[in-house]
Nucleic acid binder design. Structure first.
Lengths: 140, 140
DNA sequence: TTGCGTGCAAAGGTTTTGCATGGCA
DNA sequence: TGCCATGCAAAACCTTTGCACGCAA
């Protein structure tokens, strides 16, 4: 998308390694900073924000703003768009905060439906379904 | 839901009037404050937060946290639960920010599907579909 | 009168910006 | 060398909390 020149710095590589090691997970900026601080090689908060923002532009990372938490969450979705899992939907439990990754053709079909019948081009990567997970629904 | 005693104050009535006058719109706390400040009768930020939070508990208002904006958005959905439109889905254009209200049985069906096949009890009022609206999709 | 509502001030968190330094190409 | 990246400090926001006063019931 945005074709900005990008340097290969040590911080950027460390960050990408960390993201690759935690797939299908929503992490916050402070998660990242805490991790590297605990590891003994802290990365400045500013740098994390700027690198993540850049990766969002590059399509390597998705940004979510989830209910319940004030802070933004990021998820590494990989650089290879051919290999990317585009039929993955996210369900977020309103009660326990659990994040569920869902693979379902039937749900994927609504993407086509929205486009054909409502002229709306859905972005599955950025869409989150809110509701109650199995355990929390039972507990009610 | 929560049965708290609620006083009928002037600020609360003004706030409800404003919300009723702007249906199907996502407004932020600062929108509200700016409006009443411009009108010459400012309402304290704290009061707006607390009243909106209370209305969320009462089911009068829905709270959304939208991507792109860090601040929370609120939408008046009316007090009469019989009259409330529960089959209404929201689509938010990532580009122009337009909010589209959608009535569609086919999409409503995935609510049942999620429940039956994935044990996930969807909350349609809190779920927002992200993507591109017709105009913005064309413009790409 | 009782108790909730209001709003100012202040605190807590997250995110952004300015600027000097350091590192990649 | 030129330009981008880094990270500290500070600023800009959004949201919550404490507290004294005002108003509804």
């Amino acid at each position: 998308m945005a074709e900005k020149s990008t340097y290969k710095t040590k911080q950027r590589e460390e960050l990408i390694s960390y993201l690759e090691a935690t797939p299908a997970t929503h992490i916050t900026v402070s998660d990242v900073c805490d991790y590297f601080k605990a590891k003994g090689k802290p990365i400045g908060t500013t740098t994390v924000y700027r690198q993540l923002e850049k990766m969002v532009d590059e399509g390597l990372v998705q940004k979510y703003i989830l209910d319940g938490k004030a802070s933004a969450c990021f998820e590494y979705t990989g650089g290879d768009s051919n290999n990317r899992d585009v039929s993955c939907f996210h369900c977020k439990c309103e009660k326990c905060g659990k994040l569920i990754h869902l693979h379902c053709d039937e749900i994927a079909a609504i993407e086509a439906h929205l486009y054909e019948h409502h002229n709306f081009k859905l972005n599955p990567l950025r869409t989150v379904f809110y509701g109650l997970c199995e355990e929390c629904a039972k507990a009610v």
